[in-house]
Computed example of a mutant assay.
Amino acid sequence: MALIVIVVRLKASQKPTNARKILIPPLGMSTGFLMFVAPQTHMPWHYAVLAFLVGCLFAYPLIASSRMFVDGNDVYLKRSPAFILVLLGLLVLRIVLHTYVEQYVTIVQTGAIFFILAFGMLLPWRIAMFMEYRKLSRQRDLSLAGSLQESKG
Rank of each mutant, 00 (worst) to 15 (best):
G72F: 04
A145K: 11
L34N: 11
V75P: 10
V37A: 09
G146H: 11
F69I: 11
V49K: 02
W125Y: 14
D71H: 13
I4Y: 10
F52I: 05
V92C: 00
S147M: 14
M29S: 10
V54C: 04
S151R: 15
W45M: 11
L57D: 00
F36I: 02
D74N: 10
V96T: 04
L34K: 01
L85Q: 04
Y47A: 05
Q149K: 15
E102D: 15
H46P: 00
P124V: 03
G32K: 08
V70N: 03
S80D: 04
S65K: 02
L136F: 07
L50D: 06
M43T: 06
G120E: 03
I63V: 13
A145Q: 08
E132N: 14
Q149F: 15
I22Y: 08
P26C: 01
L57Q: 00
G111Y: 08
F69N: 14
A64E: 11
L97H: 00
Y76A: 05
A128W: 01
S147L: 14
A51T: 05
P39M: 13
P81D: 10
L10Q: 12
Q139W: 08
I116Y: 05
Y60T: 08
L27G: 12
F69R: 13
N18A: 08
I22D: 06
G146T: 00
L122M: 12
T106C: 01
N18G: 13
A82G: 07
L34I: 04
V70A: 14
L77T: 15
L57A: 07
V96A: 13
L3C: 02
I6A: 03
A64P: 03
V108Q: 13
F33S: 02
R126K: 11
K135C: 02
L85M: 11
Y76F: 14
Y100W: 14
A82M: 11
I95M: 11
L87V: 15
T31Q: 02
K135W: 00
S143Q: 12
A82D: 08
Q149W: 13
G72D: 04
R138A: 12
A12V: 03
R126D: 00
L50Q: 02
M1S: 10
A51L: 05
L136G: 09
M121T: 05
M129H: 08
I107V: 13
A128I: 05
L57T: 05
G120Y: 02
F58H: 07
A51F: 11
A51G: 05
Y104W: 09
L77E: 13
F119L: 00
K21V: 02
R94D: 01
V75E: 00
M29L: 12
S151H: 06
F33E: 06
S30T: 08
V101L: 04
R9E: 15
V105S: 08
S151L: 12
P61F: 03
L34V: 07
M1W: 08
F114A: 06
L142T: 07
F52C: 05
Y133R: 09
V37I: 14
W125M: 11
S143T: 08
K11T: 06
I113T: 12
F115M: 02
D74I: 00
A19E: 02
V96N: 00
A59F: 04
F115I: 04
L23K: 06
R138V: 14
S30G: 04
V54R: 01
L85W: 12
F52R: 07
T31L: 14
N73W: 06
T31C: 13
P16R: 01
V54W: 01
